[in-house]
Design a binder for these strands. Structure first.
Lengths: 239, 239
DNA sequence: CCACTATTCTAGACTTCTTTGGAATACTGG
DNA sequence: CCAGTATTCCAAAGAAGTCTAGAATAGTGG
């Protein structure tokens, strides 16, 4: 095999990973998987795809080495193969956001919708700031993701109230303290909604910059499991 | 437009960049462009593609915001849109190399060929080490890339001798000093060949880890233009 | 060992990429 | 303004990816 052929083969192999990133649906699956392990069925529902199609996409991602599968009974749980995969994904989004004008617009379009009022980007707390304030104890950290995701990993000391339960459980939050809400990551709308709800209830609330995913990428401390305040999941017999 | 549609659009936009990375030929073009600006014709020849095909690929890369075009007379010079694009490319290769077993094998296959004897990877100098040794003046730095690439940017103080001229110009190198050869980047074979040639001539020679590209990504100092020792390009009237 | 479930495989229709050669365009120099 | 050159556009053929529905597989629980 000549030099040129070898070079071609080499690039073609790397392109396999590139190809895996070349479908909106697969990126959506990666985004979901970045939040934690998911079953094929769950992914199919969340991405609005047929189960077969989802499975096929997952095979592509797996052959590219971006995700791995773990069998548990009849379920197969997929997950990101590593943090470097998320960094690649993040870098892709950064480059896309910086260089393709439409991406920035689409992102704003998506995040700006579904909220009662626009929340200015200044009402954010950085990760470092949150960490020091948690240490000082002058802030309530609120995790508004679904309980399973909270159980898998959350910011130490955070309280779990999924955003759809927030309106009727708002009293569980200690009054008189500022609340910092967070959700999955930069492309997740849950914390935006939560802050809007808290403001509507007259609470002082901010949003954590980005979310859990980036928290993990920066290798900041996490806690897992349920807590006493998260009463909703205590009744779940599966755990 | 509903939330779901917006999300789909957003991911589809990002996927445009992913798609651009999903072809071996385009990755090859990116690799070439990472070395510096190139014309369509040059790229077509280097990647063994038709000019029309090359142009089409370049359009894809440009629409993804990965490269930009600069017109100069009838020539159009393409170049990487920014260092973040190279970082993305690099991250892609890293993930590919780590996760897809075949990539590591293909890479070794490619780099191990065309040299008289295998050069152990230990005969490398790190960037930091080279910088301090250049400061101390106890090393000759040799740039074996084509003269145009040397002229565009090179390590300060480096001498330019393209690898194909090295056998007959080896005497231009000061004797008694160790030579550190470098070329384009991690996937470039020129420096491997150069070190083999130098060893065959009884010289003490090492290879710089990776190459010029990574040197620039790490924002280390570069010099541009020609030098007195690079006599071959002094006659070029275009400069 | 059988019924059941989650997942993967298969085949076919459909769409989207890739490549090619030739025509059209953009620019230079006389 | 014309000849010449580099590049892009265009149309068509072939290759490859995407999706769907239904069959096959792997594992669980009785």
């Amino acid at each position: 095999m000549g030099d040129r052929e070898k070079k071609t083969v080499l690039f073609e192999q790397v392109a396999r990973v590139g190809k895996a990133l070349g479908s909106g649906k697969r990126l959506e699956l990666l985004d979901l998987l970045a939040q934690g392990e998911r079953s094929v069925e769950h992914l199919a529902a969340a991405a609005q795809l047929g189960v077969s199609t989802t499975s096929a996409h997952l095979q592509v991602l797996r052959q590219a080495g971006l995700v791995n599968a773990r069998r548990e009974g009849t379920w197969v749980h997929y997950g990101l193969a590593g943090l470097d995969v998320y960094r690649l994904f993040e870098q892709l989004r950064n480059v896309a956001g910086d260089r393709v004008a439409d991406v920035g617009r689409a992102r704003e379009d998506y995040l700006d919708s579904g909220r009662p009022a626009a929340i200015p980007p200044t009402q954010e707390v950085s990760r470092d700031e949150l960490l020091t304030r948690v240490g000082a104890g002058d802030v309530t950290v609120l995790d508004v993701r679904p309980v399973e995701e909270y159980a898998a990993a959350h910011i130490p000391g955070a309280i779990s109230i999924p955003v759809e339960e927030l309106p009727r459980r708002i009293d569980e939050l200690p009054s008189g303290q500022q609340v910092v809400a967070y959700c999955r990551g930069a492309y997740c709308v849950l914390a935006y909604e939560a802050v809007a709800l808290l403001h509507a209830a007259g609470r002082d609330a901010l949003r954590l910059h980005e979310g859990m995913l980036e928290w993990r990428v920066h290798e900041l401390p996490v806690e897992s499991g349920t807590t006493a305040t998260a009463t909703a999941i205590a009744a779940d017999p599966a755990r």
